[in-house]
């Protein structure tokens, strides 16, 4: 019987290797391994043998069966491969340069939103949180509490939009800081971001624009901290560039300063530069130490606390970052501009 098996096995092996057709291979499989196949039949015959003999023969036959199965399967894959290769030889490659088609064209955020996220995230990392407040404000929050008395130039009707005195459209985001300070004692580290309004409309002014202002109040906050903070911020937004802090005046801070960054266009040489009016420097940010009168207005003790504050126009930052030259284009919403962000 073993000889018989060996013979069948040998014969099958030779036949498998010579088969060139998948259907023929399947017929062969049925011939040997099908329900009535040669191997299956032999396995059935084992029933009549005594135990020991059956076990011995059974092992041999099963081994032969397994081997045969795997040989058939291998040959099957070989034949398939050959078949596919023949088919591929007949076909042509596609034009891979045809444009792709997306299921959905992604939209975009407005450049102002985009740059705002960058600015805000940079400062959130060092502990600031964002607060918001109304755009329609009271004179008190917009001016008086900010050490800007009645006859200060900033209060002229020409600059501020009024709804009806004393209700106005906030001319800066600083009233948010007043409201925030009134709601919580120091320490405080907040950003106010949003739309602000000024009655100015020409090539370099739009009646609405966006501002981000930061405020940090604690014991012993100093000008040195302000310099460190803004150095970090500007480096994050624009990369390492020379900066200068120069004295300036805003009624709600003292000492007050303005931060200039070396011009991104002329790299500071200032020759015939339209971006920096040939000064070599770009004004980026107004800042300073919170004026004691502001603290008094919000019931902070100016003897215990000091604070730093800074503010900047977001459009200006976006213009410098993205190379946008016309301020007004931010609010035209030209699709061909929006698509670039």
């Amino acid at each position: 019987m073993i000889d018989n098996i060996q013979r069948i096995r040998e014969e099958a092996r030779i036949r498998i290797s010579s088969i060139e057709d998948l259907e023929e291979l399947d017929r062969l499989r049925v011939h040997y391994l099908g329900k009535k196949g040669l191997i299956t039949t032999i396995l059935h015959q084992l029933k009549n043998l005594e135990d020991e003999k059956r076990r011995e023969l059974g092992a041999t036959i099963n081994k032969a069966k397994d081997e045969l199965e795997s040989e058939i399967s291998l040959r099957k894959n070989e034949l398939r491969k050959l078949q596919i290769e023949r088919e591929l030889e007949k076909s042509q490659p596609i034009d891979v340069t045809l444009p792709g088609s997306v299921p959905l064209e992604a939209g975009s955020l407005h450049p102002i939103t985009r740059v705002t996220h960058q600015m805000v995230n940079c400062l959130k990392r060092i502990g600031f949180s964002v607060v918001s407040g109304p755009e329609v404000e009271l004179e008190y929050y917009n001016f008086e509490a900010l050490n800007t008395p009645e006859h200060h130039p900033a209060r002229d009707l020409q600059d501020t939009f009024y709804i009806n005195k004393p209700v106005l459209l906030r001319s800066h985001t600083s009233p948010v800081q007043i409201r925030t300070m009134k709601s919580k004692q120091p320490p405080l580290q907040v950003l106010a971001v949003g739309k602000v309004y000024r009655s100015d409309y020409d090539v370099t002014h739009t009646p609405m624009f966006h501002q981000m202002e930061g405020l940090m109040v604690d014991h012993d906050i100093s000008l040195a901290d302000l310099k460190g903070l803004l150095g970090y911020f500007i480096k994050n937004i624009f990369g390492a560039r020379p900066l200068r802090f120069r004295p300036s005046y805003f009624p709600f801070v003292e000492p007050g300063a303005e931060v200039d960054m070396q011009c991104v266009l002329c790299k500071g040489n200032g020759r015939e530069c339209r971006m920096c009016s040939s000064t070599g420097w770009l004004e980026i940010c107004g800042c300073g130490m919170v004026h004691p009168n502001v603290f008094k207005a919000v019931n902070y003790d100016p003897d215990r606390y000091t604070g730093l504050a800074f503010g900047m126009g977001i459009e200006r930052i976006a213009m410098l970052k993205y190379g946008i030259e016309d301020l007004r284009s931010f609010f035209e919403n030209d699709y061909r501009m929006l698509e670039q962000f």
Binding site: I126, P187, Q189, V217, D225, K227, G228, F245
Partner: peptide, 13 residues
Amino acid sequence: YDAIPQHFAISPA
């Protein structure tokens, strides 16, 4: 202002 040092404040805020 250039002579003022730079410092980096971390606040409990």
